[in-house]
Every structure is written in structure tokens, then in C-alpha cells.
Amino acid sequence: MTGTNDPLHGLTLAAILERLVAHFGWELLAQQININCFKTDPSIKSSLKFLRKTQWARDKVETLYISTFNT
């Protein structure tokens, strides 16, 4: 058996962020996770650049994804 218990297995950071934006929109996402790349002129590209460099922010995005879609 080669299954995994990781709910993010096989998902890219881009896919996670795109689904969160589609679900919440940028404004609500910024309320959930208070980071500037979600509040000031947000885009998938700029947010991905920040999240790839900033582990604590990426952790928050992944946690929100899990709590939103895997309950």
C-alpha cells in the first residue's frame, strides 16, 4: 500500500492558493491570513513568490487549506 495521510500530497502551492482565492476571494483571504501580499495589489504570482520564500506564511496557507477543504 502506497497511500499517504498528508492531505496536501500531490498539490502544488499554486493549486492550493488558487483554490483558496476562488473560495474566499483576496479580501477574505487577507482577513484569514494577515500578510501584505494578500492585501496590497494581490496576485497569484506575487503571492507565490512571497510564500515560497517565507515558510511561516506558507504554513498558514496550508493550514487554512486543510481546515477549509479537508474537514
Score class of each variant (00 low, 15 high):
residue 32 Q to P: 03
residue 53 K to L: 12
residue 24 F to I: 05
residue 19 R to F: 02
residue 36 N to K: 14
residue 22 A to P: 04
residue 5 N to I: 08
residue 17 L to F: 01
residue 29 L to V: 05
residue 55 Q to P: 10
residue 16 I to E: 03
residue 14 A to K: 14
residue 28 L to H: 15
residue 49 K to N: 13
residue 20 L to N: 06
residue 43 S to M: 09
residue 18 E to R: 07
residue 15 A to C: 05
residue 48 L to E: 00
residue 8 L to W: 04
residue 34 N to Y: 00
residue 28 L to A: 14
residue 58 R to K: 15
residue 14 A to R: 12
residue 60 K to Q: 15
residue 62 E to C: 12
residue 57 A to N: 05
residue 37 C to T: 15
residue 54 T to N: 13
residue 27 E to M: 09
residue 55 Q to K: 14
residue 43 S to G: 14
residue 53 K to F: 01
residue 5 N to S: 14
residue 47 S to K: 05
residue 62 E to M: 11
residue 10 G to C: 11
residue 18 E to Q: 12
residue 25 G to R: 03
residue 33 I to F: 01
residue 18 E to D: 13
residue 17 L to T: 00
residue 34 N to P: 05
residue 46 S to E: 12
residue 51 L to K: 00
residue 22 A to K: 08
residue 16 I to R: 02
residue 18 E to W: 01
residue 12 T to R: 04
residue 20 L to A: 07
residue 39 K to F: 01
residue 35 I to D: 07
residue 49 K to T: 10
residue 60 K to A: 12
residue 27 E to N: 14
residue 8 L to E: 09
residue 24 F to E: 10
residue 17 L to A: 02
residue 52 R to E: 11
residue 12 T to K: 07
residue 32 Q to H: 13
residue 18 E to S: 09
residue 56 W to P: 07
residue 37 C to N: 10
residue 59 D to A: 11
residue 16 I to T: 04
residue 42 P to N: 11
residue 6 D to G: 08
residue 52 R to V: 02
residue 45 K to P: 00
residue 13 L to C: 04
residue 34 N to L: 03
residue 45 K to S: 11
residue 48 L to H: 03
residue 27 E to T: 12
residue 44 I to H: 04
residue 26 W to L: 06
residue 34 N to E: 10
residue 45 K to W: 00
residue 47 S to P: 01
residue 59 D to I: 05
residue 30 A to D: 08
residue 33 I to V: 12
residue 31 Q to R: 14
residue 20 L to M: 10
residue 45 K to G: 04
residue 23 H to F: 14
residue 41 D to H: 15
residue 43 S to C: 10
residue 57 A to Q: 06
residue 36 N to W: 01
residue 32 Q to L: 05
residue 23 H to A: 10
residue 32 Q to R: 15
residue 58 R to M: 11
residue 29 L to Y: 07
residue 40 T to I: 15
residue 48 L to K: 03
residue 11 L to Q: 04
residue 12 T to C: 07
residue 30 A to Q: 06
residue 32 Q to I: 00
residue 56 W to A: 07
residue 31 Q to K: 15
residue 59 D to M: 08
residue 11 L to V: 01
residue 31 Q to I: 04
residue 21 V to M: 09
residue 31 Q to F: 02
residue 22 A to L: 13
